[in-house]
Write a protein that binds this DNA or RNA. Structure first.
Lengths: 186, 186
DNA sequence: AACCTAAACTAATAGTATTAGTATTTTGGC
DNA sequence: GCCAAAATACTAATACTATTAGTTTAGGTT
């Protein structure tokens, strides 16, 4: 057949990413992506090592994007101000791309590239906390608190939603205030 | 064939619940449960309306259990003390049954039984917040903050884990302190 | 022009869920 | 106690998944 469009791992991952954000992570299948790319599903194995690897690559691109967005948001800010900026950038990414965000939430023990990217997400948070005087074990506890709060909120928001007709942005602002304020009070 | 063990919807759901907490929500299949029960998978349709319905029933039982546990934990306590008790009971349930907890985290729009159970989980939180003087819209925002923090923590804990060899119980205590303290300061 | 490689294909296998139709066992009414 | 009806199991078949093996073809390189 014609190899016209010169498929690559990148283009397959891009198609999958787009698909996942449109139709949800559960709906991702090799057959679906193959059809969308105009090929048959076994041909995908020339670019990607199966559905598991495809999911991982989509998630990896997403977490790297998340790291990039939060880092640039934190640039030029420090302490509480940096923390707020990170929180809002994080939520923004998750809202814009709920499917890929869901894909990030699976355990990948022993995956080096994954752990590197996770670290890059954590770094600006740790830096901001350091600017608030939190270091050592206290900083670890604080990071976990910050991650939990932000992830919990966007997770609930992007899956179930919160129900009730009350301003969700205001809720998020309030959560960030509570956490940042609570950490400052230490 | 023999109907010796008198299967029922309840026993199928119980088997699935046990399985999910042992092997993870992703591993749940009708064929697997059928084998475990000593029947063939199509026979399961006599008790349960397909894999989707089975997942829902497992999740429903889990969220009802969660509601029960948090409510009894909150009994006799009010305000911040009640909130802390609820938080720890919530985490306890999620840690004890990570598979079913994961199953709870999916959207079920328009499912009345589901919404009723969700409400029962929320009620003690709202009651505790009322004891702290939070009502109306402020209470809604506060509920979202509390849910986010607790869910975020146990979600990260039960899926990825937190990495690093730092006391996770202490982190949770600290998170609860931060949130409860932050809400009290309002 | 010949060749090699990348990337497509077809065919086949195994594991999902699900439906339809059949048989059997239990249960409930008489 | 018997017979009909309902419940529950079965087998067979369909339609999706993912995946592997083996084959063909198109493109670029020498």
């Amino acid at each position: 057949m014609t190899r016209r469009l010169s498929l690559s791992t990148e283009s397959v991952v891009a198609a999958a990413t787009q698909f996942v954000d449109r139709h949800g992570a559960e709906a991702l299948t090799l057959a679906g992506i193959a059809t969308q790319l105009g090929i048959k599903s076994p041909s995908l194995y020339n670019h990607v090592d199966g559905i598991g690897a495809l999911r991982r690559l989509v998630a990896l691109a997403a977490i790297e994007d998340l790291a990039e967005e939060t880092r640039t948001a934190a640039m030029g800010r420090s302490g509480a101000s940096g923390l707020r900026a990170i929180a809002h950038a994080y939520r923004q990414v998750a809202r814009t791309r709920p499917g890929t965000y869901a894909l990030i939430q699976v355990a990948r023990p022993g995956d080096e590239a994954w752990e590197a990217a996770s670290t890059r997400v954590l770094e600006p948070v740790l830096a901001a906390l350091a600017g608030m005087g939190l270091e050592g074990e206290a900083a670890i506890h604080a990071t976990r608190a910050v991650r939990s709060a932000i992830h919990g909120f966007v997770s609930l928001e992007t899956t179930s939603g919160f129900g009730l007709n009350v301003d969700v942005d205001a809720s998020f602002d309030m959560l960030v205030d509570v956490v940042v304020g609570g950490l400052e009070a230490r």
